[in-house]
């Protein structure tokens, strides 16, 4: 399953929920959720824990808009809108966590 997260990790507990319930597949961070994947961020550790069972992606245009493209943590892959579409197509189902 592809999990899409769009809200800031310090605003909603979605990463914790996903750490508990997430099984396999991939996580795509978009909009304010991309902030979790930045160096020094309090949520970066949770993301690293998540990486042990899932691949983690972040939408590059949203990283750029927030001025954080240059501080993406290791293990997270940046994708463009085409990559977003590919991820949705590659997975049998997806969940948008609001």
């Amino acid at each position: 399953m592809l999990h899409i997260i769009n809200k800031s990790p310090l605003d909603r507990p979605t990463l914790d929920s996903l750490l508990r319930m997430g099984q396999s597949g991939a996580v795509l961070l978009i909009e304010d959720a991309v902030l979790a994947a930045t160096q020094g961020h309090a949520a970066a550790e949770k993301l690293r824990a998540l990486m042990t069972k899932m691949q983690v992606f972040a939408l590059a245009p949203d990283l750029e808009a927030r001025g954080v493209s240059d501080r993406l943590i290791d293990g997270v892959t940046g994708v463009d809108y085409g990559g977003f579409v590919d991820l949705v197509a590659e997975h049998p189902n997806c969940q948008s966590w609001l």
Binding site: S8, L10, L35, A60, P61, D62, E64, A65, G67, S69
Partner: peptide, 23 residues
């Protein structure tokens, strides 16, 4: 405070999200 500090982050480029850059 909280995520509000990102409002003052340097280097925001919003072209790709097609949103006006008000930074």
């Amino acid at each position: 405070v909280d995520d509000g500090v990102y409002q003052l982050k340097k280097g925001c480029q919003t072209k790709a999200i097609e949103t006006k850059n008000f930074s």
